[in-house]
């Protein structure tokens, strides 16, 4: 499956009433889920067309959460996998132009934690305080890693996995786009 096909699939799903779609093909398992709850994806959030809050519009514009996982992940991981991940980050950008950082190449045992919304990245609970996490820190599930703020909405990003912070991909007090990679974590 190439990027164009994947994009078509996402668009077709966006237009349809289907909320969940799964397929397996050539070492790639694809799962598409459309969230009908009140969600606005990052690119739209930049323009934040809140018409998307009406149920009808929400159904039409709801972001599609996509998970692409390699089946039995062979060492020679499918070359199209990182590209697919990048595509998923870029897909919402088709709606509204936005700066989308390409997802870094997938590494063995490494996961990337992304920003849940557009906003300012804070590494610490208040200016001058020690950061929530540093490179090399062990993190556990539910641990607060950073805060993303937009218009006085503070969003604590929590770890959903156990592991070690191997890289922080954004500087304190910089703008984060929706889906922008924030941390690289080596999974325990």
């Amino acid at each position: 499956m190439n990027l164009k096909e994947l994009k078509e699939l996402i668009e077709a799903m966006n237009r349809s009433a289907i909320t969940h779609f799964e397929m397996e093909q050539e070492g790639l398992k694809l799962s598409l889920r459309k969230d009908t709850a009140l969600q606005i994806n990052g690119a739209q959030a930049t323009a934040m067309t809140m018409s998307a809050l009406s149920p009808a519009a929400a159904a039409a514009n709801a972001p599609i959460a996509v998970a692409a996982v390699p089946i039995a992940a062979p060492p020679t991981a499918p070359a199209n996998l990182p590209a697919a991940t990048a595509m998923l980050a870029a897909a919402p950008a088709a709606v509204t132009p936005a700066v989308v950082t390409p997802a870094p190449a997938v590494e063995e045992g490494i996961t990337v934690i992304k920003s849940p919304m557009v906003g300012v990245f804070y590494e610490a609970p208040q200016p001058g305080a020690p950061p929530f996490v540093k490179i090399g820190d062990q993190i556990s599930e539910g641990q607060v890693l950073c805060i993303i703020e937009a218009m006085k909405l503070m969003n604590e990003v929590q770890a959903e996995i156990e592991g070690t912070i191997v890289d922080i991909l954004i500087k304190n007090e910089e703008m984060a786009e929706f889906g922008q990679p924030l941390f690289k974590v080596k999974i325990k």
């Binding site: 709850a37 994806n41 993303i148 909405l153």
Partner: peptide, 13 residues
């Protein structure tokens, strides 16, 4: 609820 983080900033206004 339910408001996903990206849409919730409107509740500020």
């Amino acid at each position: 609820s339910p408001f996903a983080p990206a849409g919730a900033a409107l509740l500020s206004f």
